[in-house]
Each structure stands twice: as structure tokens, then as C-alpha cells.
Simulated assay, not measured.
Amino acid sequence: MASLLCPSSTAKPGAALFGIQDATGHIQYLEEPVVVDQTFVDTARQHARQPEERFRFASNCAKTGCGHWSSQNASCSLVGKVVEAMNHKAGATLVACAIRTRCRWYHQEGANACANCDEVVRNIRTQEIAV
């Protein structure tokens, strides 16, 4: 089986762009993911809002290389927090999603992950560290 994808990845070459935030703040999913290159990333970073705050990217789940990985449960802790905080219940029909079959969140939380996913964007903030 191919690696599961993190649906909350950063904009980086090789990441799959699978959703775009609309004017209402919800994610509109692409029919097919688009693998982004360095030119896309560089161009997207020239805007006031970071690409992670406007687009949804997926890349291979980093597991222990990610701060959201729970080694105790061998799972992503972020999706549980999202589902609990947003508390949207899945309807009978899920919106189409190009990464669902390989999505870490879907594999862990099923349809409830999908029901809460369309409002999620990353909030990337960087800090300069004085040396």
C-alpha cells in the first residue's frame, strides 16, 4: 500500500495541491491534485497571505517526524482535535476529494474527518530568533 497522505502539509515542491479556499472560508476541492513545483511555491509566497492559509496541500505523512504524531497511538493527533473542536457530523454523502483514498485523516476518523476538513487551513507563523 502507498504511504498515507497528510492533508495539512506545507507548500513545498512535490506537495499535492488538492483544495483552494473560497471567499466563504471553505475549501473547494480539485477534481485531481496538482503536484506543485518550486516556481509555484515561490510565486505563492509573494502574496500577503501564505499559501498554506489559502490552499490545501498533501504530502506523505511524516509520522514520527511530525509534532502531531502520537507514537503511543501510532496515529495523527491533529485530526482528532479538528473533529472534536469543529464537531461537524458526516452526512450521507461526502464531497468529492481527490486524496481521500490515501488520506491519513480519513483512514483514522472516517467520514467525520471529511465533514470537518473543508474549513481547515494552516496558519503558518514564523519567528526570528535573536542570536
Rank of each mutant, 00 (worst) to 15 (best):
M1G: 00
L4N: 03
L5K: 02
L5D: 00
P7C: 12
S8M: 04
T10V: 02
A15R: 00
A15C: 03
A16Y: 00
L17R: 01
G19Q: 01
A23S: 05
T24W: 00
Q28S: 05
Y29H: 05
V34Y: 07
V35K: 14
V35H: 11
Q38N: 06
Q38W: 01
V41L: 03
D42E: 02
D42A: 08
D42G: 03
Q46K: 11
H47R: 06
A48P: 00
R49V: 04
P51S: 08
E52P: 05
E52N: 09
E53F: 00
F55D: 03
R56D: 05
R56N: 12
G67R: 08
G67A: 12
H68W: 12
N73Y: 01
A74M: 09
C76V: 11
S77F: 05
G80M: 12
V82W: 08
A85T: 15
M86I: 12
K89S: 15
A90C: 12
L94N: 12
L94V: 06
L94W: 02
A96C: 13
C97P: 06
A98M: 14
A98I: 11
T101I: 11
C103H: 08
R104G: 05
H107P: 08
E109D: 14
E109S: 13
G110F: 11
C114A: 12
N116V: 08
N116C: 14
D118N: 14
E119L: 11
R125P: 02
T126A: 11
Q127C: 10
V131A: 04
